[in-house]
Design a binder for these strands. Sequence first.
DNA 1: GCAAGATCGTGAATCGTTTCAAGGTACGCT
DNA 2: AGCGTACCTTGAAACGATTCACGATCTTGC
Lengths: 331, 331
Amino acid sequence: MARISIRDVAIHAGVSVGTVSNVLNRPNLVAEATRERVQASIGELGFVRNETARQLRQGRGHILGVVLPTMSNPHFTEVGRAAEEAMNADGFDALWCTSDGSRAKEQRCLDFLEEQNVSGVLISPLDLDEDRVAELHGHGLAVVLLDRVGVRVCSVGADHRAGGALAARHLLTRRHRRLLFVTGPLSARPVRERHHGAVRAALNAGLTERDLTTFEQAEMTAAAGQAAAVRLLTLDPLPTGVFCANDLLALGLVNELVRAGVKVPAEISVVGYDDIDLAATAVVPLTTVRQPRAELGRTATELALAETGDPEHHDHRQVVLSPELIVRESA
Amino acid sequence: MARISIRDVAIHAGVSVGTVSNVLNRPNLVAEATRERVQASIGELGFVRNETARQLRQGRGHILGVVLPTMSNPHFTEVGRAAEEAMNADGFDALWCTSDGSRAKEQRCLDFLEEQNVSGVLISPLDLDEDRVAELHGHGLAVVLLDRVGVRVCSVGADHRAGGALAARHLLTRRHRRLLFVTGPLSARPVRERHHGAVRAALNAGLTERDLTTFEQAEMTAAAGQAAAVRLLTLDPLPTGVFCANDLLALGLVNELVRAGVKVPAEISVVGYDDIDLAATAVVPLTTVRQPRAELGRTATELALAETGDPEHHDHRQVVLSPELIVRESA
DNA sequence: GCAAGATCGTGAATCGTTTCAAGGTACGCT
DNA sequence: AGCGTACCTTGAAACGATTCACGATCTTGC
């Protein structure tokens, strides 16, 4: 029942603990015969390295924290997956945390990660707390902000303003003149930027405030999108083009419109954001703004790893990636 | 830059490390004045407990691993979320791992968790490796199987056979006599059981093998569901009732059918499985078999915690929960 | 004024690793 | 024989916390 330690292995193999450790970490220093004997003992006893002790000795674990606002939106889990893959390739592991939309939970995640002695954190913050980030950073953790630029840390994100503009301009080229923007909470910066980008583009194209309506939904889920559709249908005159701040909203909205007998895109066109897998298989395949998810995750990991690798002279980079309009059928 | 340790705090506050530890863990043993002084130093220095060292000393961390086959299916992330909530309530934290459909990755997850010294693991195994489970268990970890019963460990799952039967019987009561079953890989037990349950129910109701078609999709995604729909439409005669092994498949399938001009449920009825959030907001709100997700996760945590609490005389329980048919519009 | 408790604080041992200076052996070379 | 080199192996000192037996100091009661 008691856990097998390196010491047990050493005794069993008739060598010192140092040698067992060498077999584990620098096998080339150990004579072949010895090495095999030790390996055999390891197998026989079912020894599993205690990473906890190893970390303690080594200072920091080979672990990066990943803090996401939710696991229910495939966009985020995919970014995380790409990040994790990149870590694994470098011998690091991911520690996933979810803030679940709560600032308090987000703090708990960060505390947890810091206590767990991770060497860095990739975080998609709800609402950037610069001080907390500085603190983390001061404690020697590499911090990479996802979708948010911060002072004095690395960050990687897509250009949401450009993305919003992309969506709006697409609707405008299709001659839509009455637009509805269905956003999430504007307190969240990426959401706000998508919205501003879209509004700006519309205004630049000669539309006026009166041509624009905004629904600010509390959640960015399909259910919220559905609710938005219901509300949309009470508008008079009806908008002909809708931009949703993410695909989940767009999916719920389109579904409800179709159910109500509205033809998409003939009567109302809809553009989403993110290009999650579900977008392509929707009833009306969704025209949407694709975020370079895999690149986002991968780059975030790279930045974090670069910083942990050489914290001394590391200059923080702000990587901003370009979103891409994916035209399908909904607009 | 160097991490602040309990020793630094002790020096700063002019006490011994033992006292600082007491402030942290048994504050009642420390005089109020001292306690406050230490607390002040902790705040001032920005001390963060090194959970790694604590774990080393204490034997096992207050962490439970959660191994899921994918983060892209909301069903699993929701189960995980419920499990995590229950852990948090008991002072435990969750360590999330994804096997991503690969047996090898699953092994890596388990190795990782064991090295991390977690005190237990909740696992939704791809394909149960009894030996590995026994090994984990032998190493003193509490193991709880999700959706799979195993020998000599706790498990909690829904009754998939009953769920499959529920779905099939619903189609049968609606007078469907030509059924299509769109399943995932039948090598996965829960999938197989859903299928068997459905087939059995159909046969019992007097249908023959010739009335039943099965598509075994490699993935259980909306894209796979879409592909299944395309193939479905080549069938002659067309089935009138379809049971999909999960909601993602069903969603993709329904969407494609609707796109092709097929009326759901009038011409073809579809039943899904899981009742993920998206099911309710689909174009044709999905009739589906709900799994008690929250209860599943919560119960799994409870079982694991019970075992870690008192490993000596703990009898392993096999909890099986009942699925429930949710009738909406698709069938 | 003193013994017996009660109340606090200390310091060393410990958890399982890694690391590294130092010790052994064997071998070849002069 | 003596010495230098290579090659292996050892043992002890960390890492940062917790725990616990033991002192030190203060009360209290007689």
